[in-house]
Design a protein around this nucleic acid. Sequence first.
DNA 1: GTACGATTTCAACAGCTGTTGAAATAGGAG
DNA 2: CTCCTATTTCAACAGCTGTTGAAATCGTAC
Lengths: 189, 189
Amino acid sequence: MPRRGPRSEGDARQEILDSARASFAENGYDRTTIRGVATAAGVDPALVHHYFGTKEELFTSSVSVPISLATALPNLISDDADRAGEAIARLFFSVWEEPKARAALLGQLRHALATGKQPAIAGFIAGAVLGRVAERMTGEDRELRAELIASHLLGVAILRYVVRLEPIASVEPEQIIALVAPRIQTYLS
Amino acid sequence: MPRRGPRSEGDARQEILDSARASFAENGYDRTTIRGVATAAGVDPALVHHYFGTKEELFTSSVSVPISLATALPNLISDDADRAGEAIARLFFSVWEEPKARAALLGQLRHALATGKQPAIAGFIAGAVLGRVAERMTGEDRELRAELIASHLLGVAILRYVVRLEPIASVEPEQIIALVAPRIQTYLS
DNA sequence: GTACGATTTCAACAGCTGTTGAAATAGGAG
DNA sequence: CTCCTATTTCAACAGCTGTTGAAATCGTAC
C-alpha cells in the first residue's frame, strides 16, 4: 500500500520522543543530553536534530502530552460542592498515575524548577489548574487559597514521584486521597 | 598585630562562599559555574578550587548554614499541643524568611530536586524535620501524615521562593500562616 | 635587604555539550 | 534499470565545563 511520504514515518521519530520524555523525567533538563537520548533510541544524534530542531524544541515536543485536567476541573467544583476536594484529589492522581502523563509532568515540573522562571510553570500550573479552581471559589483570598491547594498537591507530587520518599511513595493513591481531600475541601469554602 | 597564617584569611574566601550560595540558590546546581562564581566574587576560577576542592565540595560548604530547626521542633509539639500547627508554620517561615538561610535552603532544595536522589533530601527533610514531628504524633499513619505536612510546606516554599507565583510570593507570612496552620493542626491529631 | 609561606593568577588540558553540513543509504515510482 | 525523495549517518566545528600545575605576587619574619 504505497503512500506519499515515508512509509515508516513515526518509527524512529516516536522512539526518540519516548526516550526523550523518559530522560527528561528521570534526569531533568540539564542532565539530559541529545547524545544520551539518541543512544537510548538507537539512532544517531544528528537524527534528533533533523526531526526536532533545538534541544528546547525537543523538550517541548516530548513533554506535551494531552492532559484532560483543564476541561475536567470546572465540572468537579460546580457539580457536587461538598465533595469537590475529593474530586480534585482523585483527578490529580488519575493523571499522575498514568505512566506517560506522569513522565511528561515530571519533565515539565523539573524543567520549571530548574530554570525557576515563571513562564514555564505559570502556564503549566497557574493557567491550567489554578485559574479554573479560583474561578469557582468564593470568599476572601480566593487566589491565595487556590494556590495553597496547588502547593499541597505539588508537594505531594514532588515527595512521591521525584524524591520518592517512603512511605508516601509506595502507598496506594486512595490512602493519600482520603487524607488530603478533607484539607483541600476546607480551602475551597 | 602579627598572627600565624594569613592575616586576611576569610576575606576572598568568604566572598566566594557568598557568591556560590547566591548562585546555587538563584540558578540551581547545574547552571552554576565555577567561572561564574569566581567572576561574581572578583577572583580567579583557580582560587575557588584552591580553597574548596571540587564543585560538589564547594556546594556543600556554601549551603551548609546552621539551621535551628531540628532542635526547636520537639518543643513546639509537646508544649502546647493545640497550637502546634501554628507553631510549626511560624517556625517554618522564621527560617525561610531569613535571607542567608533562605539562600542555603534554596540551594539544597534545587540540588535535591535536580538530582532527584534521596540521600540529599532525605537527610535534609526527612531526617531533620519529619522524624522529629512523627515522633510526637499519635494515631494511625503517623509517618504518612507527617510527610503530608512536609509536602504542604514544601509546596508553599516552592511556589513562594522558587517559582515566585503571585500572590503567594508577595503576601505577608502571617497571612499564609493563618491559612496553613489549621490544616497542619488537623494532620497532627 | 633576603627568604619563606600563603594568596592569587596564568595558561592550558581533556572532556562533554549542542549543533551543523555534507555524504551515504534505503526503498518505492517511472 | 534510473531517478527521486526521505531517512540516517559521519565527521567535525566551536563553545563551555571542571580541573590542574606551574608561575607570579604579596606581606611578613628574620
